[in-house]
């Protein structure tokens, strides 16, 4: 059971984590605390010099997550509007990754319980697919179209307005 300390986030201790492929990483305790899983381990005194093993997170996404948490922990309290905007820019650049990395980040952030990063990756995924056609989504996700041509036509007809994606509507009706 963790002993109650006076205040949160004051510790300068470095927390070590180990990826599934054996690479070691270090981050400040305040950064590790952004992960619910790491935070519980730290509070239960499971963080030692050998590092906390993360069995399902490979080095590549873990390096990104360490970056994310370190940046966000350093800027966590009493944000000015400028700092908040800077953090937003950091997030926007941070999540500009290819789809493989995005998938890895989605899974890893979910597993590690890094809520901010989970939301960021989920939103990015949503942004990537929202402008696509149904056919493009079938390709991206390897989905087989199991509608009959008649059914598909009926759905398209019922919802014609939603299929006009190339140009914005000239008038609202």
């Amino acid at each position: 059971m963790a002993a109650a300390t006076d205040d949160a986030g004051d510790s300068n201790e470095m927390i070590r984590v180990v990826s599934s492929d054996g690479e070691h990483f270090e981050m400040p305790e305040a950064a590790a605390n952004l992960s619910l899983v790491l935070r519980h381990m730290i509070e239960d005194d499971c963080a030692d010099a050998a590092g906390i093993p993360l069995a399902v997170v490979a080095a590549k996404p873990l390096a990104k997550i360490v970056d994310y948490c370190t940046k966000h922990a350093a800027k966590s309290s009493g944000l000015t509007i400028e700092e908040a905007e800077e953090l937003k820019r950091f997030d926007a650049e941070f999540i500009e990754v290819d789809t493989d990395m995005l998938y890895d980040l989605l899974v890893a952030a979910d597993f590690m319980g890094v809520e901010g990063l989970s939301k960021l990756a989920v939103q990015r995924t949503a942004d990537l697919i929202k402008g696509k056609t149904p056919e493009q989504n079938r390709e991206t996700f390897g989905i087989v179209n199991d509608f009959t041509p008649e059914e598909e036509e009926e759905i398209c007809k019922e919802n014609e307005w939603a299929f006009q994606i190339t140009k914005p509507p000239s008038r609202l009706c």
Binding site: P134, I143, F147, I155, N159, A162
Partner: peptide, 13 residues
Amino acid sequence: KSLVRFKSVCTGW
């Protein structure tokens, strides 16, 4: 709008 369009991806969606 995207959701309405994606109803036609497959029966599962």
